[in-house]
Amino acid sequence: MKFDPERPIYMQIVDLIKKKIARNEILPMNKLPSQRELAVLMNVNPNTVQRAYKELEDEKIVVTLRGQGTFVSDNPALVKKLKNELANKALDDFFIEMKSLGFSNAEISHLISKFLTEGIDDNAAKS
């Protein structure tokens, strides 16, 4: 994985794990890799992974059981919450981009409904 050089790496690991949970790639009660395994996998310092797991624990997304490892919380609301969180982020990025291109709310709304019914307009996308 390539890291964004302008954001703390531990936060990027936190976001990656959240994303995997939201996409059901890691399920509630699944075991996460050990800190050492993940550090080797991602070419980072084990201390950085520890910091990421600590952050996930503080947000109650994972629990660490002594001697057994770190597990995704068994909380049915969690996946939903993460999905919403990520959806809001995607919307946010989309609106910031559209506004920077000078589209008004009405135009954006029109484009969205058009997109939902017809898919993307190839000619418009190219021009």
Binding site: F3, M42, N45
Partner: peptide, 29 residues
């Protein structure tokens, strides 16, 4: 990977010098 795997964070410290800064930055505290 070998450094990430073998670094004994409980009782060890490492200084790693490099002029190619962006290669290894994930390793540094």
């Amino acid at each position: 990977k070998a450094i990430a795997r073998e670094f004994a964070s409980e009782h060890q410290s490492i200084i790693l010098s490099t002029h190619e800064v962006f290669e290894s930055e994930g390793l540094f505290d």
